[in-house]
Amino acid sequence: MSTKKIIAALLSTALLGGLSACSGSDSKDAEGEKIRIGSTDSSKKAWQVFQDKAKEAGLPLEVVDFSDYSTPNQALDQGQLDVNQFQHLKFLASYNSSANATLTPIGSTEIVPLALFWKDHDSLDGIEGQEVVIPNDPTNQGRAINVLVQAKLLELRTPGLVTPTPADVDTDKSKVKITPVDAAQTTAAYGEGKPAIINNSFLDRAQIDPKSAVFADDPSSTEAEPYINVFVTRAEDKDNERYKKLVEIWHDQAVQDAVAEDSRGTSVPVDRPAEDLQKILDRLEADLKK
């Protein structure tokens, strides 16, 4: 090969290499690398507004959507994500305990209350002595019992349990009886006129107005703390200012308006310091180890 052809080939290779580098640069912009954040509901309006606001603040996001609830924590733990935002503190505690992990909350978002519904009633008046139907799955049963504790309808043999079971209820001191059923059956019980605790995913299917609840858990109560939804990262990244800025952006009014629209007005914003969230998480993890 002639010297001219060799030089031409080298120049062509260099040019192709430069183009290849440019084509791979979509993971960056003028403000720096994109933040990879995991979600399970990125199609919701709040996430679209959140991405736009983050980009305006110089924090472009690469949102990775997951179809299940176990993978986002694994992906974060393994360094495939920078942050995730899909879970409450109780779920995070369960993951950390089972995986021997140290994933860390850096900010809160909201609580979606679990509520008590009673057809053709707008208050708790007359509920004493009634049979209240609650979901029997591990995620909701303990929380449902605590909703009734907060409503002063149930008393526990040992106050302050994070995840009480029906066996923990002091029936002699309680004002109602509870009947655990499959969560999907709570709406049927409601339709029959029984008071029922129904989670949000079944309200829509049964066309029950979430604002018709006669009682919901108080987001500022100790019993509700495990269900605060959070931004999470690895322990070594908990002080990363870019990630912490995402928490501030989530509480931008435009994002909050979209969250309210997505949840039909049922979500309650929660803005708790990371230190408080870590204390709650530590308590939950300690309870799981007992």
Rank of each mutant, 00 (worst) to 15 (best):
V230K: 07
D237C: 05
A183P: 01
Q207I: 10
K175R: 11
T186I: 00
D217K: 12
K175Y: 02
A224Q: 06
I198A: 12
A224V: 04
K175H: 03
P180C: 07
T165A: 10
K244Q: 03
N229C: 12
T233V: 11
P219G: 04
E225F: 04
K211E: 12
E241C: 01
A196Y: 06
D172Y: 03
K194N: 08
N240R: 07
T222Y: 09
D209R: 15
A167E: 08
P226F: 11
K244L: 00
N229Q: 15
E236G: 10
P166R: 11
D170G: 03
S221I: 05
R234Y: 09
K244M: 00
I228Q: 14
F202M: 09
D172S: 01
A183I: 02
R205A: 15
S201W: 13
V169C: 09
D168C: 05
S221P: 08
Q207P: 02
D209S: 12
D172C: 00
K238Y: 09
T171F: 04
S221R: 08
D217V: 05
S174L: 04
T186S: 11
T187N: 06
L246V: 05
V181D: 06
D217Q: 14
A167G: 09
Q185W: 01
V247C: 06
D204Y: 13
V247R: 01
D239T: 14
N200S: 15
D209C: 13
N199V: 14
I198S: 12
K238L: 09
A183F: 04
E192W: 12
A189W: 08
Y243S: 06
N200Q: 13
Y227E: 14
P166G: 09
R242P: 00
P166K: 11
A188I: 04
T187P: 06
A224K: 10
